[in-house]
């Protein structure tokens, strides 16, 4: 049982999140402002904090700063502010994820699961030298077993999808155009590759990403190509 603290000044939202997370067998603690949240964190073992930004009194950003001074527990920010600049501020201050309101309940649950796995069970997989394993963050490919793991869970990919993902992960951080991916994976000159690759990429994204529209690992650089984000 993991303790998850949900902090939002809107009681109905806290309640709804409580309902969703309880179904997933989490123990939910509730707070309605920053000070309450801090009190609970100091007194109880908390495994994850879901924190709203716009709250009366101590707001989410200040609360996050306080938490980060004492604890290293994962924090998921929740906010109606959807500007890129707001997200960047939150992530810079040490938040682990950022979900904008109104959120899709399933996405929220997936992100909570992901955070919990990352910071508790999963830890980090050691990549032995010489072994045919590639990784970026919690995305791991074991080329010997032909297995793809995301946050410790195996994902089933078709052979083509597997090859594309392996190629991108081997060269993580580098952007490749459709033609380059085709030539490297098919070992053939690109001919009418066009949207075939794009379709495959979308399928991979749907399988490995929580929100395929806002991918964490497989990023789309529109008009240029694709890359696997380099995450330590």
């Amino acid at each position: 049982m993991y303790n998850i603290l949900v902090c939002d000044d809107d009681k109905e939202i806290v309640k709804a999140i409580d309902i969703y997370l309880s179904k997933e067998d989490y123990n939910v603690l509730k707070a309605y402002n920053g000070n309450e949240a801090l009190k609970i964190i100091r007194n109880t073992e908390v495994h994850l904090v879901i924190l709203d930004i716009m709250m009366p009194g101590k707001d989410g950003i200040e609360t996050l700063e306080e938490i980060r001074k004492e604890f290293s527990i994962p924090v998921l920010m929740l906010s109606a502010k959807s500007e890129d600049s707001d997200k960047i501020i939150g992530l810079d201050l040490g938040a682990d994820d950022y979900v904008t309101k109104p959120f899709n309940p399933m996405e929220l649950i997936a992100r909570v699961n992901s955070c919990i796995r990352r910071y508790t069970k999963f830890g980090s997989i050691e990549v032995k030298e010489g072994s045919k394993m590639y990784k970026s963050g919690d995305l791991v490919i074991d080329d010997n077993l032909k297995k793809v793991m995301i946050e410790g869970k195996e994902v089933k990919l078709t052979p083509t999808e597997y090859n594309i993902l392996k190629f991108l992960l081997k060269n993580k951080g580098t952007v490749f155009s459709i033609d380059q991916i085709y030539e490297n994976v098919w070992k053939d000159e690109a001919y009418a590759a066009e949207n075939i690759i794009a379709v495959h990429i979308r399928h991979i994204r749907e399988k490995i990403e929580i929100n395929p529209k806002d991918p964490r690992y497989l990023k789309v650089i529109w008009g240029i190509g694709y890359k696997i984000e380099k995450i330590d």
């Binding site: 155009s177 949207n195 690759i197 794009a198 379709v199 990429i201 008009g223």
Partner: peptide, 17 residues
């Protein structure tokens, strides 16, 4: 500078299904 054809192909891929 972005490639228009590349962008169109990417989006066709997204919407093909």
């Amino acid at each position: 500078e972005i490639g228009l054809i590349e962008l169109l192909n990417q989006l066709i891929g997204e919407y093909k299904d």
